[in-house]
Simulated scan of single mutants.
Amino acid sequence: MNKIKKINIIYCITVLISIFGSFFTSYIYLITKNMVYTLLTSQVLLIIPALVYIISNKFDLHKTIRFHKLKISNILLIIIFSYLSIPLMTLINLISMLFVKNNIQNTVEVIINENPLYISLFSIALIPCIFEETVYRGIFYNEYRKVNVINGMLLSALLFALLHMNFNQFFYAFVMGIIFVILIEATDSIFSSMIMHFVINGTSVFNVYMIPKLQDMLKEIDPEYARDLADSLNTHYTRTELLVSISSLWPIVLITTIFAAVILLAIAKNSNRIEHIKAIFRGERLTEIESDEETYSYDASESKNSRLITLSLIIGIAICLVFMFLGEIL
């Protein structure tokens, strides 16, 4: 059995474990009365099939997942790039809320309200950025890219988005998945996507944590303004409020996205991978030296002989879609 078939079976197993694990995590919540334990358990369940795949194939983690060092200058640029990308994610989220439910916001608020800030950051930002990046970009994408880089990018982003199991997260998670992969290709290090993942999730946690405190401070100064601020930050938007927010946000998104693209090019240039990025989007044959002894080649034309889509992958995707539709209906 080739590696693509194996990795697609791993995805299907991950989906099944995630679904059946939801019942287990519900039981954990009944015992602990704390969503943190539920979230951490779901993250552990997510990574188990990938770990089995790594161990059974005796992979070198450094090469397979691309645990390569980052320059300090690139770390700073990645943080800036992450913040410049947040308005785009926010806009996509708002647009999706015109059509689907926002089910995740309440969960985040519950975790933050029930726990100290450091626990919330650990469970919502740190653990997901390590586990999810290791699974989706470290394992799935790095196997798919050996067949076709662009298709691997899109497919790994799709699988990442689908396993969130709701349409609201699906849309911005898909775009995030693509951006994470481009960032990895620009740096040749999965640490870059981990940093960006942490910054985005961590910023969301920090905002939700600080807003009530800011409102309490404002109540002492200007109660009327505090009430207006609370109304403007209400997550239960009407359709009209969403449209107003979208229309006011898109010019900011346009500017920040342009700056983000400039920063991304600077990151690639700083990593000596500008030509590599250009070659990917031109569909050219890529040859990369992974070590002194081995050379790995990735060719866009190889997809004619190797298929990324297999029956197990289709089953996994179908199961995700069924549960996503059920989540909207129920």
Rank of each mutant, 00 (worst) to 15 (best):
M1E: 12
K5S: 11
I10E: 03
I13S: 06
V15Y: 04
S22F: 11
S22Q: 13
F23R: 09
F23T: 10
Y27E: 09
Y27P: 01
I28F: 03
I28N: 03
L30E: 12
V36C: 05
V36K: 01
T38S: 14
L39F: 08
L40S: 06
S42M: 15
S42T: 14
Q43N: 14
Q43D: 11
V44H: 07
A50S: 15
L51A: 09
L51P: 12
Y53T: 05
Y53S: 04
N57E: 15
F67Q: 00
H68D: 00
L70H: 00
I72P: 00
I75R: 03
P87K: 04
M89P: 00
L91W: 02
L91H: 02
L94E: 06
F99P: 00
V100R: 02
V100G: 02
V100E: 02
K101L: 09
N103F: 02
N103S: 14
T107I: 14
V108A: 13
I112C: 11
F122A: 08
F122L: 15
F122I: 08
F131S: 12
V135R: 10
Y136F: 13
Y136M: 13
G138Y: 10
Y141N: 14
R145M: 14
N148D: 12
N148Y: 01
I150G: 04
N151K: 12
N151A: 06
G152K: 03
L155C: 02
S156Y: 01
F160Y: 11
A161S: 15
M165F: 15
N166E: 15
Y172K: 07
V175E: 05
I178M: 09
I179H: 03
I184F: 09
A186Y: 10
A186T: 09
A186Q: 07
F191L: 12
S192C: 07
S193N: 05
M194I: 14
H197S: 01
H197N: 03
T203L: 06
V205N: 01
V205A: 03
I211G: 08
I211M: 15
K213D: 09
Q215N: 12
D216P: 05
D216E: 15
K219D: 10
D222M: 08
P223N: 13
P223G: 10
Y225I: 11
A230S: 14
A230E: 15
D231M: 13
L233E: 14
L233K: 08
T235R: 08
T235Y: 09
T235N: 11
H236R: 11
H236P: 04
Y237G: 02
R239D: 13
L242H: 03
S245H: 04
S245K: 13
S245P: 01
I246F: 06
L249Y: 04
L249T: 09
L249W: 04
W250R: 09
L254K: 07
I255V: 15
I255E: 06
F259S: 07
A260P: 13
V262W: 08
L264P: 04
L265K: 13
I267T: 01
A268W: 01
N270A: 04
R273W: 03
I274E: 00
I280W: 00
E284C: 10
L286A: 04
E288F: 05
E293G: 02
Y296D: 06
S303E: 12
N305P: 04
L311G: 07
L313D: 02
G316I: 01
G316L: 01
A318W: 07
C320F: 03
F323Y: 14
F323S: 06
I329F: 12
